[in-house]
Simulated assay, not measured.
Amino acid sequence: MTSPAPDAGVYISPAQTHAEVRRIADGQIRMEAKLDAILGDQREHRETIADHESRIRHLEANRWPLPTISAVGAIIAVVASVVPLIH
């Protein structure tokens, strides 16, 4: 096969076309690998966030006794200090 004359325009050989298609395919493979890595990291972060969320909810649910205990202690202290004054 002979190449066309120089004034016929741009000529891209099948080998050049194949090389460009391979380059694009290799780039797509690299992007897919990076995307898979990002999605894997995202899953790990979701699990970590869910774990932290459950821990925070547990801490919030169990902190209510502390103010109640403080209030009861304050009431007992007030009663203890008022009782001698009444007698």
Rank of each mutant, 00 (worst) to 15 (best):
L85T: 10
A50P: 03
G40W: 04
H18F: 14
I69S: 02
P67D: 09
R57K: 15
D36I: 00
A15Q: 12
H45A: 07
T17W: 13
V72P: 03
G27Q: 08
I56D: 07
K34L: 08
R30H: 06
Q28F: 05
I75C: 04
G27H: 06
D26W: 01
E44K: 10
R22S: 11
V78Y: 01
I12C: 00
G73Q: 09
N62M: 14
P84Q: 01
Q28W: 06
P67S: 08
R46D: 09
A19L: 14
A77T: 09
V21T: 10
A61V: 03
V78D: 01
R63L: 07
L66N: 02
Q16F: 01
A61C: 01
V21P: 02
L59G: 13
V10K: 01
I12S: 00
V79C: 13
H18D: 15
H45D: 03
H58G: 02
P14N: 13
I56F: 14
V10E: 03
D51Y: 05
I12H: 00
I69C: 01
E53C: 06
W64I: 08
A25W: 07
L59S: 10
A19K: 15
R55V: 07
P6F: 04
S54E: 14
H18V: 09
D41S: 12
E47A: 15
P65A: 09
S13H: 06
S70V: 10
Q42R: 14
P4R: 03
S81I: 08
H45W: 13
D7G: 07
Q28M: 08
R23T: 03
G27I: 02
